[in-house]
């Protein structure tokens, strides 16, 4: 029950099947990394799980603690405990980070219930201290003019405040920006707990120098072709993605 269970999921984008019979189970308390070459469907997996309307589910199911979420709207999935850190999060001009997170928490309360401002700020500042984020940061508009590292800081702070059951971190490209990479690593390492399952999506093995995953999955052409312990990432680094391609062709 305490799992995010992706069962034989097939996803189509603009008529093309991108995910093919994809299966993966992430238990709470574990960090799983998905690696794979570009264009193999990693970001599609993240967007489809979050419920983006451009991603059409053509088969399979996704169970969050035993309950299917595929019929839920993106905001309902979020409120039921699924968080996604975006690779390229949108700007929201004029809305401060503090107000945005507050609105997100308010949306989780029953109608007529009001988030208590003093308690909220106390908790916000605790989390910011925990993540070594400067107090001035949350007065800025969400992602407006942010550097790569600041965007990640903003995503990780939201993750910390919303305390989801499962977090998907789409970090496909963040291996390129060392500041961004360190922010994500520090965040995940700090927030790792028995109450949360993490799915870390990356293209670069380098991220895994900072975050040690419980399991590593190699993805190719819309499905997982190899799974293993953390050492698999090193093997992949040594052999490159060509090795995956050959491996996938051999087993297909």
């Amino acid at each position: 029950m305490n799992t995010l269970d992706i069962r034989n999921l097939s996803v189509r984008v603009a008529g093309n099947e991108i995910l093919k019979n994809f299966s993966l189970t992430i238990p709470k308390g574990e960090v799983h990394a998905i690696m794979g070459p570009n264009g193999t469907g990693k970001s599609t997996l993240a967007k489809a799980l979050a419920g983006h309307e451009d991603y059409e589910i053509t088969g399979g199911d996704v169970l969050l603690d035993g309950t299917s979420i595929l019929e839920l709207e993106p905001d309902e999935r979020s409120r039921s405990g699924l968080f996604m850190a975006f690779q390229y999060p949108s700007e929201i001009p004029g809305v401060s980070i503090a107000n945005f997170i507050r609105a997100a928490l308010q949306a989780r309360l029953a109608e007529g219930e009001e988030l208590e401002a003093t308690k909220y700020y106390k908790r916000l500042y605790e989390k910011m201290d925990l993540l070594s984020i400067d107090r001035k940061f949350t007065a800025r508009s969400v992602n407006e003019g942010f550097s790569g590292g600041e965007k990640k800081r903003c995503e990780i702070l939201q993750l910390a405040m919303l305390e989801p059951k499962y977090a998907i971190l789409d970090e496909t490209d963040s291996g390129l920006d060392i500041d961004a990479l360190k922010v994500v690593a520090h965040g995940v390492n700090t927030l790792r707990s028995q109450n949360m399952g993490v799915l870390l999506i990356t293209h670069y093995q380098r991220l895994l120098n900072y975050i040690v995953p419980d399991r590593v999955h190699v993805m190719y052409d819309g499905r997982i072709v190899k799974s293993g312990p953390k050492e698999l990432a090193l093997e992949l680094e040594a052999n490159g993605y060509e090795w995956v391609r050959d491996h996938a062709t051999a087993t297909a």
């Binding site: 996604m84 949108s90 997100a104 949306a107």
Partner: peptide
């Protein structure tokens, strides 16, 4: 932008409202 806000738990109307208020 709307999808991003929805992913944080805001309904579509709440997301639009927040954008406008911003």
């Amino acid at each position: 932008q709307i999808f991003y806000m929805q992913q944080r738990g805001l309904s579509e109307a709440e997301a639009m409202s927040l954008s406008v208020n911003g």
